[in-house]
Design a protein around this nucleic acid. Structure first.
Length: 558
RNA sequence: GCGCCUGUAGCUCAGUUGGAUAGAGCAGCGGACUUCUAAUCCGCAGGCCAGAGGUUCGAAUCCUCUCAGGCGCGCCA
């Protein structure tokens, strides 16, 4: 609908240029928006205001010229008025709005799909938790954000690949092995020392017991036993992580491993390539990458004095490898505590001639957990944390996903366990799901009375006349452009607000019928009933499509 | 000290990328089920958009500074 408005406006302005009514200038960027005040019509544009300076005329004059010469061949418009300092407010004819219901009825689950992405290849990397412990709330937030973003990008015509990068090399996996081995020995000898920075969670003991059942650790020399614990522990944690993610309805196309980077020689080759470019140098016995000319604060160490590579080294190899796969864009979802890392990795990319814009990093702010009015501090090392699995057990996958997606990723999120555990109805997700279930119940009612929806285009002789009805259709018309905006801004949380608004319009409408029988959907008037059923079917479809993109069930009964 | 993020109703947060009179939910008060699902709806109350300047037809939104909070600044991972 917005596109059709835009077509009319540009045609009108160009026509005015042709006929010399407006002096020929470039058209500055202007906005067609949905006013928040219904009295301002269905759409409003500021085009005459942004034209004012180049036309050297008053905005209201230009607005009048545009209105008097509107090229509305298809009779889309009901009215166009000048308002305020020079806005033009438009109203669309009711029959045009109702045409949308026919469109949704035909497209069904496909309504909202578009080709804004034009098949562009995008790689989205998210979660990427270390396989040294279970997923916690921060990972859950990243999983919900990344997964929903991918679903929406794919729906908008992007060619999306989802990747999980496994940091499975280096010291922390060794530390996992030491922690597990120590717990194993402590079964017999409680005084056996525990590594200083070891992982304290209860799951370490679970791992120790499970691993010792597969292999008699007492028979191995200590070093081998620790290595075995590290390897097995890593594998088992990864299985747990995959299981949790799967239950959370998150799937990945590729699992990329840091160990593979080392073993395949890719890390070595990448560094040699950079060395040939002239960005590596030796200092104090270590190897450094010259990142400071590319916006980083200082140069960074790639290989330590002791010969070990830093994480930065494998991250560079990993990201350069991503570029080689033909993706025109990459999105990373990281915890906000890694934000200092962004300029560094972009500098490394720049040094290799890759634009920093190729990579977008979404930083997720902290998830704080509250219980009994107190904040629960989370720390994997100290072993005190709430896992994603525990949260799913407590409130269900739907509620967890919805709550995580209600907030912008760069604002911190408070998760109140008491509220969410005790009173299900306080969960905003039920508000949206209930709207869907209600719509379904209307169809059950209609069916029970022997009324079936006709497949024919919506007949308006009965008329969808109520403002409440038009408001819903207008909201539904905005669904595709909302999805496109989400792709442009990478802000999927806007979908939860959209769905809540649409559900509110529907609940309000539904309640009209409890007061006034004529406002019910199923009435004695057959034509009106058909039109309203098409409306309800439209709402049901859009909510179902939106919930599907959020990865949330759309129940038919509640 | 430097950098990134945040500051909007009592609380948790939106705010269509610069638009018209700043919006929800929860908490509070008062109403609506003999009816298509009350997990709902309606009404009341609640605001110096942290503060001060600036940019322009127009600022919660953009720029500068100040204040407050979170996070990060390793040859750690």
């Amino acid at each position: 609908m917005k596109n059709r408005m835009n077509a009319i406006l540009t045609a009108t302005i160009n026509d005015c240029f042709e006929r010399g009514i407006l002096s020929r200038t470039s058209i500055p960027p202007y906005v067609i928006e949905i006013p928040n005040n219904p009295a301002h019509g269905h759409f409003a544009t500021n085009v005459s205001m942004v034209l004012a300076s180049s036309q050297r005329r008053r905005p209201t004059d230009i607005a009048k010229t545009i209105i008097d010469n509107l090229k509305d061949d298809q009779h889309l418009l009901e009215s166009a008025d000048i308002a305020g300092p020079g806005f033009i407010n438009f109203r669309i004819r009711a029959t045009e709005w109702c045409g949308l219901l026919t469109e949704i009825g035909n497209l069904k689950a496909e309504y909202g799909r578009n080709d804004a992405g034009k098949g562009e290849k995008v790689l989205v990397e998210f979660v990427s938790a270390n396989p040294t412990g279970p997923l916690h709330l921060g990972h859950g937030r990243g999983a919900a954000l990344g997964d929903t973003l991918c679903r929406i990008l794919a729906f908008c015509g992007y060619d999306v690949a989802r990747e999980f990068y496994i940091n499975d090399a280096g010291a922390q996996v060794r530390l996992l092995g030491e922690s597990v081995y120590s717990r194993f020995r402590q079964i017999k000898n409680p005084h056996y020392p525990f590594p200083e920075n070891g992982y304290h969670g209860d799951y370490i003991l679970d791992l120790a017991i499970a691993i010792s059942q597969k292999m008699d650790l007492n028979k191995l020399p200590e070093e081998e036993a620790i290595a075995f614990c590290a390897q097995k522990g890593k594998e088992m944690m990864l299985q747990e992580i995959k299981a949790d993610l799967s239950r959370f309805r998150v799937v990945f196309d590729t699992w990329s491993s840091e160990t593979d980077l080392h073993q395949s020689g890719l890390l070595h080759d990448t560094l040699e390539m950079i060395r040939e470019d002239g960005y590596l140098y030796e200092k104090d016995g270590a190897t450094w990458l010259r990142t400071s000319p590319f916006g980083d604060d200082k140069d960074r160490v790639i290989r330590k004095k002791d010969g070990e590579f830093t994480y930065f080294a494998s991250d560079i190899a990993y990201h350069l490898q991503k570029c080689g796969k033909g993706f025109t864009r990459a999105v990373n979802i990281w915890g906000a505590d890694h934000h200092g890392y962004v300029p560094r990795i972009k500098a490394a990319l720049s040094a290799h001639g890759i634009s920093p814009n190729w990579l977008s990093v979404l930083l997720i702010q902290l998830v704080k957990l509250w219980e009994g009015g107190q904040e629960i501090r989370m720390s994997k090392r100290a072993g005190s944390f709430v896992t994603l699995r525990e949260l799913m057990d407590a409130v269900g996958e739907d509620a967890v996903r919805f709550v995580f997606l209600m907030k912008n990723h760069d604002s911190p999120l408070d998760f109140d366990m008491d509220l969410v555990k005790k009173r299900d109805s306080d969960n905003p997700v039920y508000y949206v799901q209930y709207a869907h279930a209600r719509a379904c119940s209307i169809f059950r009612k209609a069916e029970a009375e022997g009324i079936l929806m006709a497949g024919a285009p919506v007949d308006l002789s009965g008329g969808l006349i109520l403002e409440e009805e038009l408001a819903m259709i207008r909201a539904m018309a905005d669904f595709p452009s909302l999805l496109m905006e989400i792709c442009a801004t990478l802000e999927p949380h806007r979908l939860t607000y959209y769905l809540t608004d649409l559900a509110a319009l529907f609940h309000r409408y539904f309640n009209l019928g409890t007061k006034v029988p004529e406002y019910r959907v199923v009435t004695a008037d057959a034509a009106l009933t058909q039109a309203r059923l098409a409306l309800v079917e439209g709402v049901r479809t859009v909510i179902a499509n939106g919930l599907r993109l959020l990865g949330i069930d759309a129940p038919e009964k509640m």
